[in-house]
Simulated scan of single mutants.
Amino acid sequence: MSDRYHATVPRRLAVELIDPAGSSLGEGPAWDAAADCLVWVDILGQKVHLSEADGTRRATKEFDRHVGAALPAEDGGYLVVRRDGFARWHANDEITPLLDVLTDGSLRFNDAKCDPAGRAFAGTLCYTDGVRGRGELFRLDAGPKATPVRGPVSLANGLGWSPDGRLMYFIDTVEGTLTEFDYDVDGGVLTAPRVLVNFDGSAGQPDGMCVDDDGCLWVALWGGAAVHRFTPDGRLDTVLEVPSKNVTSCAFGPGGRLYVTTAAGALSPEERAQWPLAGGLFVAEPGAGGPAAVPWRPL
């Protein structure tokens, strides 16, 4: 990592377990303000969870394939990013396909998020470990159609936008980069990429992320048992310690709560013994707040 990464001694905070879910690959937390709940997924478990603010499970929906994310929809229900494309989970519990994108079974969709205007972005990865440069970042446009906006990438992951919407952030886990772009909210166009933070793997690999009201970036670390907060110029200033080796993503909810998802599925038996809370849903009150998820605007 760069010297800037370790330029200061960061403050250290802890989390509280609120759901010992044991998720194989817990991911994609997003606060649904309209439904007043947290929506999050277990990608490999093929489940979407709805949880109360205290972690109590409101509902779980099982799918017939891997599911990368579930984004609150402006008209109710959720835009579900499945292994190969997009579907709607309606408020009446009906599932309807929206758009199939991937035909290569070695690829799947991963993380997804909506920009400040309600456009959905979702990225892909290759199932085979070590394979690089086969992923892409897509924008879901009217039609519907999936428009490639960044690629090739190796493992498309965390997304975020600055509070004023002028900057977009994107994580490629395998390449260990958190890239910043200039962003045109009117057109949904990202330009002028520059790496804001380079990760060398010594503290884990960057995974999902969110942005707080001060424009600071909270990055979950796969293999790092932590979430790191970076200032807008890329300096580490806070370490949120998590009792799970593989931390996958985070999102703000009401009252300054930061929800953190983790994964248990990639651990060896020895690691499972070392990390018995792996796969759980955690919460912290880090002294910062952030927005609820921007709802997806149907096409």
Score class of each variant (00 low, 15 high):
Arg82Phe: 05
His90Ala: 15
Glu74Pro: 00
Ala69Tyr: 02
Leu71His: 04
Asn92Glu: 13
Ala87Cys: 14
Ala59Val: 03
Asp64Met: 12
Ile95Phe: 08
Leu79Met: 15
Leu71Thr: 06
Thr56Asn: 08
Ala73Tyr: 00
Arg88Gln: 06
Arg88His: 11
Asp84Phe: 05
Gly85Glu: 03
Lys61Gln: 09
Arg83Glu: 15
Arg58Leu: 14
Lys61Glu: 05
Asp84Leu: 10
Glu94Phe: 05
Val80Gln: 00
Ala87His: 04
Thr60Gly: 00
Arg88Asp: 06
Gly55Met: 08
Thr56Glu: 10
Glu62Thr: 15
Arg65Leu: 13
Phe86Tyr: 10
Asp64Lys: 09
Arg65Thr: 13
Thr96Trp: 03
Arg58Phe: 01
Val67Phe: 05
Trp89Arg: 06
Arg82Val: 12
Phe63Glu: 01
Ala91Trp: 02
Arg83Trp: 08
Glu94Asp: 15
Gly55Thr: 08
Glu62Trp: 08
Asp84Val: 10
Tyr78Leu: 15
Gly85Met: 12
Glu62Tyr: 09
Ala91Asn: 05
Arg65Asn: 11
Asp64Leu: 13
Lys61Leu: 07
Arg88Ala: 14
Pro72Arg: 04
Ala87Ile: 09
Ala91His: 06
Thr56His: 09
Trp89Met: 07
Asp93Phe: 06
Gly68Ser: 08
Arg88Gly: 08
Trp89Pro: 00
Gly77Arg: 00
Glu62Leu: 15
Gly77Ala: 05
Ala91Tyr: 02
